[in-house]
Amino acid sequence: MRCALFVTCLVDSLFPEVGVSTARLLHHLGAEIDFPEEQICCGQPAYTAGFAAEARKVAKSLIRALEGYPYVVSPSGSCTAMIHHGTRDLFRDDPVWSERARDLASRSYELSQFIVGVLGVRDVGARFPARVAYHPACHGKRILGLGDEPVELLKNVRGLDLRDLPDARDCCGFGGMFSLKMGHLSSAMVQTKVRHIRETEAQVLVSTDMGCLMNIGGRIRREGGGIRVMHLAQLLDEGLRDRPVPVEPRT
């Protein structure tokens, strides 16, 4: 099963290790993966800030880069949601590019969606003995329509103790440019989120988007740490190697 890995600009530039875990995980599950090197970004930062012309320019370059692959898989519900919704919105008045955008959307999947929905795998065979809280990232859930796939995968990880996260449905306060333009507000939101995460006594916080995890992780670190922040791909990949799970102390 040939698929293009769309790692997203955030993973490529700031968290390449998440891309490595995603590639290894998909490879382990039998997918034949390629990384089209012209790919950069879906254009979401410009789109949600209202800079449609810039967003179109970036989105076009991604559409070109991912042309021809039967499957496109990304470790981001938000960027996949952009491909499914925002990109098509950007080209709503352009018949040629709107068709190319629709075509890309029809082939694009968020990682857990691809593993459960396309590969038909619910148990990747990982072992990860730790208390884990899961943050359901907003764009994956509400725009892309991602359901219980990440939870299914987590529940089948041996030794994993999945904790209920209070007010899990509330946004962590990232929101791209929002986190810079409305820094105080964004910061209040992430403090609320981290308070709830700490209430679960989880050792690990896991999610499907590095935007949220960068925000939540940045706050946890500023508070002195104590909770590892991992992308779902990292947790599953690490769980496949069956090493003792490192625990992060709070300073």
């Binding site: 490529d12 530039s13 700031l14 968290f15 390449p16 986190s179 810079l180 333009k181 409305m182 820094g183 105080h184 964004s186 910061s187 992430v190 403090q191 960068m214 925000n215 992780g217 940045g218 706050r219 670190r221 500023r222």
Partner: peptide, 15 residues
Amino acid sequence: GWTGSRTAPAVAPRS
């Protein structure tokens, strides 16, 4: 706006 309350990640040495 970000670093006032959160640590930010640096660009990775290798993308």
